Computed example of a mutant assay.
Amino acid sequence: MPEQDDDQREFDLRWADSAEHKEPSARARMLAARWKENPPEPVPFRGDPGPVAPRRSSWLSTVIVLGCVAAVIVGLGYTRFMAPY
């Protein structure tokens, strides 16, 4: 099958774009059939995200992490101090 030159290909694109009737995609046909029987409920442009759980303070997280690091340092120092030489 010989390759089409650019002019012929552009002609084909213009011809396809100027078609009076364009067949919808399979998904569009499926949704149209489904919505004919059971139409979707209207949805606002930006829906309400719903209730949001309160966030804990970032300071609390920082204190917990630093406390764990300090406990590990003290624990390692204590075991080193108690270990016989």
Rank of each mutant, 00 (worst) to 15 (best):
P2T: 08
D6M: 11
D7H: 08
D7Q: 08
R9V: 10
F11W: 10
F11Q: 09
F11D: 03
F11I: 03
D12P: 01
D12Q: 14
L13S: 03
R14P: 00
R14Y: 02
R14S: 01
W15C: 10
A19D: 01
E23L: 14
E23F: 14
E23P: 06
S25H: 05
S25G: 15
R27P: 00
A28V: 14
A28L: 15
L31D: 02
A32H: 11
A32K: 15
A33H: 14
P39V: 08
P42D: 09
V43I: 13
F45L: 09
F45C: 00
G47C: 11
G50Q: 05
V52I: 15
V52R: 13
R55K: 15
R55M: 15
R56N: 10
R56Q: 09
S57H: 04
S57E: 04
W59Q: 03
L60C: 06
L60S: 15
T62G: 13
V65S: 03
L66I: 15
L66G: 10
L66R: 00
C68P: 00
V69C: 09
V69S: 02
V69T: 07
V72T: 05
V74W: 14
L76S: 06
L76N: 10
L76F: 13
G77W: 04
G77P: 00
T79R: 07
A83I: 01
